[in-house]
Each structure stands twice: as structure tokens, then as C-alpha cells.
Amino acid sequence: MIGPILFSVFAVAAIAGALGMLFSKNPVSSALWLILTLFCVAGLYLTLNATFIAVVQVLVYAGAIMVLFLFVIMLLNLAELPRLQTGDGKRFLGYVGACGIFAALMITTSSALGVLPEPVSVGVAAETGSALNLATLLFTQYALPFEVIGILLLVATIGAVMLAKRRFV
């Protein structure tokens, strides 16, 4: 009985955070709303019994990435910008496109209604999402992609330092 309640609370809070990010004027409050959404997504991972990914979500997203965003916002001396872009024709086109994407996603979701196989039991799911199982896969079957991701992060760090340091005339 606790499952549906937890899901509803996290889902409503996640959508509220996303809308707050979309509509708040100040970039700092946008970032704080997004942190609420990221925490709620971590909670949703917990309701799915994906414990390892939930912890990584809090550490990497809510911890590292959002601190980086907040740091850059504070670093730049930002003027207040108008909240949303103007331009009527383009704006209407944007709404139509977003509604189209939403409709396509919902049609796909509803067409999956009877087709998908039955979910596995809670015990199996908890074992699937455990750190032990994921680490075993990560260091055996997916060892090469894991190393390549390390190289990617190194290159991104070097590139970020170079871009932020150099003065483009």
C-alpha cells in the first residue's frame, strides 16, 4: 500500500520542480527547483528497488552537476532576462512541436499496455539493481566501455579548462 503513495508524492513533486524550473525568472531558483526534481527522481529509483542508481543520482546529479551549475551562475554577473522568448509564430510552432512529442510518447506508452511481459518479483528486482550485481557487470562484461568513459571524462576536463582559460579575441 505504501508503494502508490510514495510514487504519487515523488511524481507530483518531480513535475512541480520541473515546472518551477521552467517558469522561475531567476536562474538560481531554476537550479534549486531542478535539484528538487533530481532528488524526486532518485526517490523514484528507490521505489523501483534500483538502490545503486538512486545513490549515484544523488551524488552525481544533485551533488556534482548542480553545484557546477550554481557555481557558474554565481560566477557570471547575470542581468535579469525576460522569462520566456517572444515571437508569436515561432512560439506557436514550439507549442505544436512539444504537444506532438508528448502525443507520440503517450501513444507509444499506451500501446505497450498489454504487450509488455509481467514485471519480475520484488526480490529479483532488488537483486538486479544492487551495487554488487551492477559492479560485477561493469568490471567484467562492460569493462571496455567503462575505461572509454574514463578517457571521455579526462578529455572533457581538459577541454573545459582550455575553453574557460583561453581568451578569444
Binding site: A11, A18, L19
Partner: peptide
């Protein structure tokens, strides 16, 4: 829920100026 969050992200990319 994932579809809703994705569309909110799309709207943010299309309509925000910052």
C-alpha cells in the same frame, strides 16, 4: 511521468532565453 518530464525539458529548451 518520464514523458511529462521530457516534454517540460523540451519546452525549456525552446522557450527560455538563458
Amino acid at each position: 511521468l518520464s514523458a511529462i518530464l521530457f516534454v517540460i525539458g523540451v519546452l525549456g529548451v525552446l522557450f527560455r532565453r538563458n
